[in-house]
Design a protein around this nucleic acid. Structure first.
Lengths: 331, 331
DNA sequence: ATGAAAGCGCTAACAC
DNA sequence: GTGTTAGCGCTTTCAT
């Protein structure tokens, strides 16, 4: 049986309420009494039970961070940034992975609800309606998704996407495929929308392929359709998909960027390391993680809606994009 | 104010204890009463408060997973596997990142203590003494570290390390550098120990370099010392370090594996994607995550010590290792 | 400044 | 099968 406040009270010859005050409102207790209490606590190895404290204060000092897939390299830097910022504000962070499944996500939020003061919902796959409903149980901040009535941190992938299309068109591409991501992804919709708009502006053709899972397998799967179409360049939903596509395209005997230019999204560490290094849209994940926690803490401490923050994205050009092979030299 | 068991009791015209039973021991309550209770709960949008339940049952149905660095690609697959297995056993998982800092790790464990039934301590940087002490507050299972008196899941990196040294010697290398990782890392000690032993067996020279942080920066930092020494091959603490070393060695005008062979450890996805693709020791992280949760659940439900599980590792040969340049052709 | 007592939301004997 | 009654460990009035 763990040592409780009661044991400390007995050991130090004061009442439990005094011990409680010594720990949570030090200034309300005589300095020497406090010292005596603390000594007793130390001697006994007492640690406050946060769950019990939460039951009575209705404040856990925990925050939740819910992501679709920890193994997707997009998320870890965001999580780390969130965790660091939360520490700064004296909160602990619990991370949970929904495995890209809306059902799991909903259940996770529900089960987390009473154990955290608020949660960061990153790249949620839930419907806006469900999010709003869950939002009544837990204060949310939503990252990379716009939900009416909830504070949001948005990475404006549209601007980066436009830069990507401009870049491809400038290289001479006239037909661009876009690998659409999960249909429930807000980011996926924004990428596609911005790509369509930018392509139209240049009078270039845009060819949607998908939806496919946001993984290497998803990218590999799309390869056949891409190479059999007219596109000489591809905009992939994310770096993972881009990489899977590249590997499969190479397996089909074509080369990147020689035969096909590929642009990713996220600028994960993979983009720097893979061969060819990936031209990709950089997402400000560290700022998003930090900012998300800031909004969340603001929300849970003041009760106000801190509103929406939008962060810019930009294209990072590396080796996976080049001018299209001229028709004459095509096999 | 959230709706409680009390509201449901009033709404359905039964006593609170009946509502409680309806939720946690359905078979102990009349079917029709139960239906009525459930209907009332549904109508009111009642959700059991897990924290309150935990206070009274002393069981949270949460497990903790504590890792050094979520952004290190070694951890995410392990976390995912653990989370999946825990779900299977009706537990939720809270992940926390210690940022490679022992102080943070200790504090995290302490604060998690009362909110989880047990925790998986992965690649802990704490001293064995502290772990054992904390182990009195929370049931632990320790992954990749041997701690007296605690259940462990060990990935036997020594076997893979031996294979790596054998491989390098077979290629013709006579002098091998080993980039030692964090001195508090059990794995780091095992790698070094096994490498020394294997090198000695072959009569080859082994040259320790470090300790350096287990990151790309750590690897880059070690480059100068490596290239100025006699080694023609390097065994790095992990893939990240290997990659950082390779990049820096290339920046110094040398080539891998032409001028220097490099072996990593972990077989993270980076090893497959980087250029040159990395020869590395594969770690069975998925099995470790799963197995760790199995032991932990066993431990928390039965109270028994499930003992130690050891998993094998093996070398995966890719492109970053080759025979040493013969002295004649050296610049 | 400290003690007494009620209560946070739930479960678990023990009665009936 | 259901109601009664104590707690679980802590905070927070309200007295003193």
């Amino acid at each position: 049986m763990a040592v409780t406040i009661r044991d400390v009270a007995r050991e130090s010859g004061v009442h439990v309420s005094t011990v409680s005050r010594a720990f949570s409102a030090a200034h309300m207790v005589n300095a020497v009494t406090r010292t005596r209490v603390m000594a007793a606590a130390e001697r006994l190895g007492y640690r406050p039970n946060r769950a019990a404290r939460a039951l009575s204060t209705r404040r856990t000092a925990n925050l939740g961070v819910i992501v679709a897939d920890i193994a997707n390299p997009f998320f870890p830097p965001l999580i780390k940034a969130a965790q660091a910022q939360a520490r700064e504000r004296d909160y602990h962070v619990f991370v949970a992975d929904t495995d890209e499944r809306a059902r799991v996500e909903e259940e996770l939020v529900r089960s987390m609800a009473k154990q955290v003061d608020g949660a960061l919902l990153v790249a949620s796959r839930l419907s806006g309606r469900v999010i709003a409903e869950l939002g009544r149980d837990v204060p949310f901040v939503v990252v990379n998704r716009r939900v009416r009535g909830l504070p949001c941190v948005l990475m404006d992938v549209a601007s980066g996407t436009r830069q990507a299309v401009d870049h491809l068109v400038a290289l001479g591409h006239r037909d661009i495929a876009v690998l659409t991501g999960p249909s429930a992804s807000w980011t996926a919709q924004r990428i596609r929308g911005a790509a369509e708009e930018a392509a139209a502006r240049h009078g270039a053709g845009l060819h949607p392929v998908g939806p496919n899972p946001p993984t290497e397998e998803g990218g590999a799967f799309a390869a056949a359709e891409v190479v059999s179409g007219p596109a000489t360049a591809v905009l992939a939903y994310n770096d993972l998909v881009a990489l899977g596509l590249i590997r499969e395209v190479e397996a089909l005997g074509l080369s990147v960027p020689g035969d096909l230019s590929v642009v990713g999204v996220d600028n994960t560490h993979i983009a720097r390391h893979c061969r060819p290094a990936l031209t990709t849209v950089d997402m400000p994940v560290v700022a998003a993680g930090r900012g998300g926690i800031d909004l969340l803490v603001h929300r849970v401490t003041t009760g106000e809606d801190p509103g929406t923050v939008t962060l810019d994205t930009r294209l990072v050009v590396r080796e996976s994009t080049a001018p299209p092979r001229s028709p004459l030299t095509r096999p």
